[in-house]
């Protein structure tokens, strides 16, 4: 009954949308959607940067959609549990995923088997923000620039370690990419999340770390940590003085991104409605202000642009993961 009902409604809606597109030349928004609350699945623990982005955006999307968008944390397996839940959810737009570089580019490459296909199992909605990573060192480490760090690591290979938020995380890969591109040796020390890792870098138990810029920006400003460089191609607007890693190690670029996905098969007009709500939320000045304080850059996109972005990210990380020989079960 329910299946039939759904497909019929979907076919009807798709037909209507096609007709409307032909007539008006612009996608019509799904009629009657949403008529109940939408669940935005965050595949990480509450309180982290992805969670914060989700909550800020969900709040504004609720206002626009006229229905509550609630955030549900389904943490586990590096984001795979939550992503898999959404991939297998009813493709009706009422369950959407706050995806990241981890769920949609790195995990499928690193893990021997991923329960979902990052491209085929999802209907992209919109890219939201890009968050730079930053190369930080304890102030007692006698280096002030990336070039000095490279020289130090080359002078004493194998002596220094770097901390990361865990095996196979974007921050770990930022470190591995740095090692291979700069031709240096550092021992990798994984932690359970960025918090404890940061703690040990501040306490100089481990001298070097790649971190998300938002979580260490306070420490860089007060000098408890020394920020050497950001990992994006351009300098971060919140730290205009800080160089990029790419200025010393040409071609180096990594960052973390957040984007919304629906399960594959979600009607295009529902995706369009959600895309519209997400982009309106990003355009809100209060959201913009929060994101800037948070050192995140608002991007926004069409569903097609996000699809292309995922493809490009997978292509970019494939050789990195292969060269670093990171393979998890």
């Amino acid at each position: 009954m329910r299946r039939l009902h759904l497909t019929r409604r979907r076919a009807l809606a798709a037909g209507l949308s096609l007709a409307a597109t032909l007539a008006l030349g612009s996608p019509v928004l799904a009629e009657g959607f949403p008529d109940r609350q939408i669940t935005m699945v965050v595949p990480f623990a509450a309180g982290g940067s992805t969670d914060v982005v989700a909550r800020i955006v969900a709040q504004k999307m609720s206002d626009d959609l006229g229905q509550q968008v609630i955030v549900q944390n389904v943490a586990g397996a590096g984001g795979n549990l939550g992503a898999d839940n959404v991939a297998r959810a009813e493709p009706d737009g009422y369950t959407i995923l706050m995806g990241t570089v981890a769920t949609h580019a790195l995990n499928p490459l690193i893990l021997k088997s991923t329960p979902y296909d990052a491209e085929k199992d999802f209907a992209p909605i919109s890219l939201l923000v890009v968050v730079p990573n930053v190369l930080i060192v304890n102030p007692e480490l006698p280096v002030k620039t990336v070039a000095e760090l490279v020289a130090l690591l080359k002078a004493e290979p194998g002596k220094y370690s770097y901390a990361s938020s865990g095996n196979g995380t974007p921050l770990h890969l930022s470190g591995e990419l740095f090692k291979s591109m700069a031709g240096v040796e550092m021992e990798h020390i994984p932690y359970k999340g960025a918090g404890p890792a940061l703690n040990d870098v501040i306490g100089n138990q481990v001298p070097i770390m790649f971190d998300n810029l938002p979580s260490s920006s306070g420490h860089i400003k007060t000098g408890t940590l020394r920020g050497l460089a950001v990992t994006t191609k351009e300098r971060a607007p919140s730290f205009p003085e800080m160089p990029t890693v790419g200025e010393s190690v040409p071609g180096y670029e990594t960052y973390t991104w957040n984007a919304l996905f629906a399960p594959a098969g979600t009607p295009p007009e529902v995706v369009a409605r959600l895309n519209d709500a997400a982009n309106k939320a990003l355009a809100d000045p209060a959201v913009a202000e929060r994101m800037t304080e948070f050192s995140a850059t608002i991007v926004g996109s069409t569903p097609e642009e996000l699809a292309a972005h995922v493809k490009a990210e997978i292509a970019k990380w494939t050789p990195v993961v292969r060269d670093a020989k990171i393979q998890l079960d």
Binding site: M1, R2, T39, I70
Partner: peptide, 13 residues
């Protein structure tokens, strides 16, 4: 406000 669906897809018609 726990994010549970009060009635799930098996009973929603």
């Amino acid at each position: 406000g726990l994010p549970f669906q009060r009635f799930g897809p098996w009973v929603r018609f």
